[in-house]
C-alpha cells in the first residue's frame, strides 16, 4: 500500500495547470483534496506519472454570488460550503446534502470539484447538481466549455472531462421563491456513501407540486432524474398516500445495481421507500 513513484507539480494558475495536463495527457492526474485520489494511489488503482496539485490556484477557490446564479469554485472545500450562509440561502438543497458527505475531517480537505470529477455514483454533490440543473465549467487548451450536469456524469467514475481539461467550477441557478428542497439517504454507517439517496427540488403552491426535479443516487451508475415519478406527481396535490403510490413509477426510472450492501431488488425497494419519505418532507417544507 505504497503509491508507485510519481512526479509532482504545483502550478499557480489555471493556464499552467492546463499546460501540464496537455503535456502529460492520460499520465497526469489532478490533485485536489486528495481524499479519494491518495487512497487510490496507495491501493495502486491509479498510477499516474505526474500529479498536478491545484491547491495553489486561488482562482479556483470560493463561492461567488451573482444576480441569477451562484458559482462554486472547484477547489472550494466541503466544509466551507457546509457553513456558508449564501449556500443555505440560495442553494438550500446543497445545504441539506453537505453534512451527509463523509466526516468532518474529510470535509475539511475534500473539494467540490474533486467530488464532481470523481463521479462516485453514490456521491451527494453530483446528485444535487443534477437536481438543481447546474452547469459545469471546464477549461482546456482551447478555452472554456460549459456542460449541463445531466451530461457531465456519464457513468461510475466517468465524466465529460477530457484528460487535458480542468473542472474550474460549477454554476447553480439561485433557488427561486416558492421552491422547496428535501434530501435523504440511507447509509450503513453515518458518513458512508449512500446505498441509495434522493435529492428533490420543486415548486409548491397551494399544496401542489410543479417543476419537480427528483434525483436518485447510489442506485445506478450515476445520479438519475426520476422522470416518470416527476411526471406522475406534476401538478398533483401530493398527500403521503399519493406519493407512496406514485413511487412505484421509480421502477421505470432506475435499474438498481447489486453490490456488497444490497441487491438490486433491495435497492429498488429502498429507493421507493426513501423517495416517499423525501417527497413527503418536501411537501412539509413547501407548505410550512
Amino acid at each position: 500500500m505504497k503509491a508507485p513513484r510519481f512526479s509532482y507539480a504545483r502550478p499557480d494558475t489555471i493556464a499552467e495547470a492546463i499546460a501540464l495536463l496537455t503535456r502529460f495527457g492520460e499520465d497526469a492526474r489532478v490533485l485536489a483534496g486528495g481524499q479519494s485520489l491518495v487512497p487510490m494511489l496507495n491501493l495502486r488503482i491509479a498510477a499516474p506519472s505526474i500529479l498536478v496539485d491545484i491547491n495553489q490556484i486561488s482562482a479556483l477557490n470560493g463561492l461567488t454570488v451573482e444576480a441569477e446564479k451562484v458559482h462554486v469554485g472547484a477547489l472550494t472545500r466541503h466544509a466551507h460550503i457546509e457553513s456558508s450562509t449564501d449556500v443555505s440561502k440560495y442553494l438550500p438543497l446543497l445545504a441539506l446534502a453537505m453534512p451527509h458527505i463523509a466526516h468532518p475531517a474529510i470535509r475539511t480537505r475534500g473539494t467540490f470539484g474533486g467530488s464532481c470529477a470523481l463521479a462516485d455514483p453514490a456521491a451527494e454533490i453530483p446528485a444535487c447538481s443534477v437536481a438543481l440543473d447546474a452547469t459545469f465549467v471546464l477549461a482546456g487548451p482551447n478555452g472554456e466549455r460549459r456542460v449541463p450536469a445531466q451530461d457531465f456524469f456519464q457513468g461510475a467514475l466517468t465524466t465529460a472531462l477530457k484528460s487535458d481539461e480542468l473542472l474550474t467550477g460549477v454554476e447553480f441557478p439561485k433557488s427561486k421563491p416558492g421552491y422547496a428542497a428535501a434530501f435523504g439517504e440511507l447509509t450503513r454507517r453515518k458518513g458512508d456513501y449512500a446505498i441509495v439517496g434522493v435529492a428533490a427540488h420543486g415548486f409548491i403552491s397551494q399544496a401542489r407540486l410543479s417543476d419537480l426535479r427528483i434525483v436518485i443516487f447510489g442506485a445506478s451508475d450515476r445520479p438519475v432524474r426520476a422522470r416518470h415519478l416527476e411526471s406522475e406527481l406534476e401538478g398533483k396535490e401530493a398527500s403521503s398516500e399519493c406519493i407512496r403510490r406514485a413511487a412505484t413509477a421509480l421502477d421505470a426510472d432506475v435499474e438498481p445495481r447489486d453490490d456488497l450492501h444490497a441487491t438490486g431488488e433491495t435497492r429498488r425497494y429502498l429507493t421507493r421507500t426513501l423517495a416517499s419519505r423525501v417527497l413527503s418532507d418536501l411537501m412539509k417544507v413547501g407548505v410550512s
Partner: peptide, 19 residues
C-alpha cells in the same frame, strides 16, 4: 443483521444477497 436481513424477515424483499 444488515438492513437486507431485516427486510427479508419482514417479507419486504424475496431474498437477501448471496453475500
Amino acid at each position: 443483521i444488515t438492513p437486507e436481513v431485516v427486510l427479508e424477515a419482514l417479507g419486504k424483499i424475496s431474498q437477501v444477497s448471496s453475500v
